[in-house]
């Protein structure tokens, strides 16, 4: 107390400000812990539900209990099949979505001209609304078991999500900020780095997120019909063997992988890129 009284008004303000920041940080941490608690509770609840349902609502051969599926996952891990199928699927998605990203961005940039927009518009819309199953069937017939099939399907199914978002981002370019940088004679390169790209980043991000999730679905679907490798292929094999444990195990692996990509990678990038938004929200 005596120490506080000795402080000048300026110092006093700093002290209280420091305390406020600490209190806010502690509250934030508590909220995060609480959220994790609920999230874990959700997992426990649904796993329990699954466990109870298996054997009571349904035969445990049709709905294999979590423990059985876990055992199966362990076996898949040990057999070495996991990496072969996973890498095959990931490779196709990696190549296919990279192509889709560049194609989508290019078309998005082109559609700023009204002529190119007229040229592409209906194609973008129709590729976006065509069900993934249609691509899977068509490339299956044309390319057979070749890995080119899924890649082509990915490009067709997902580029439009990037296109639409890029186009929207460019339509919303911050003219006032661009004028400002022109008035200050900022070079075009610096303008691109400091104004246009940071503005487009969230749009690109949304495009990638949607496009990527579509790419996953189409890849797996294509593999179910026409492939001899990959997660979709192995799911079909398990289906033909009526192996529910295997099917559920692969679904679980797929689920864990998606979760890792979403939480581990996409969210990490997002947090790095958009830190300014969080700081502003906290203020």
């Amino acid at each position: 107390m005596a120490k506080t009284l000795d402080a000048s008004p300026d110092q006093l303000q700093k002290i209280t400000h420091g305390q406020e920041t600490r209190v806010a940080a502690r509250k934030k941490r508590l909220r995060a812990v609480k959220r994790w608690g609920w999230r874990i509770a959700g997992y426990v609840f649904f796993l329990l539900l699954w466990d109870v349902a298996s054997g009571t609502l349904m035969s445990d051969r049709l709905l294999v209990p979590p423990a059985g599926v876990a055992r199966e996952i362990g076996e898949i891990f040990q057999s070495g099949d996991l990496w072969m199928h996973l890498s095959s699927t990931l490779q196709k998605i990696g190549i296919g979505f990279t192509l889709a990203f560049f194609l989508g961005t290019t078309i998005g940039l082109l559609t700023q001209s009204r002529w190119w927009e007229a040229f592409f518009k209906d194609w973008v819309t129709s590729t976006m609304t065509t069900p993934g199953l249609v691509y899977a069937l068509v490339v299956g017939v044309i390319f057979g078991f070749s890995p080119i099939g899924p890649i082509v399907a990915i490009v067709f199914a997902s580029f439009s999500y990037v296109t639409v978002n890029v186009a929207e981002g460019i339509r919303a370019l911050p003219k006032d900020l661009i004028d400002m940088s022109k008035a200050f004679r900022v070079s075009p390169g610096s303008r691109l780095r400091n104004v246009i790209f940071p503005h487009l980043a969230p749009y690109l991000f949304t495009g990638v997120r949607y496009g990527f999730s579509i790419a996953w679905k189409v890849t797996v679907l294509t593999e179910v019909f026409a492939s001899n490798k990959g997660i979709g292929f192995i799911m079909r094999v398990e289906f033909q063997l009526f192996s529910m444990a295997g099917l559920l195990a692969w679904i679980s692996i797929f689920f864990i992988l998606m979760l890792f990509l979403e939480k581990g990678i996409l969210q990490f990038i997002e947090q790095r890129f958009f830190r300014w938004r969080q700081e502003v929200k906290l203020a």
Partner: peptide, 21 residues
């Protein structure tokens, strides 16, 4: 130039907004 609205880059810190020009 000083504009009617501040026209700052929301994704850059105050200091970087100055350095930007």
């Amino acid at each position: 130039y000083v504009f009617q609205s501040p026209r700052l880059l929301p994704w850059r810190s105050v200091m970087d907004n100055l350095i930007f020009v």
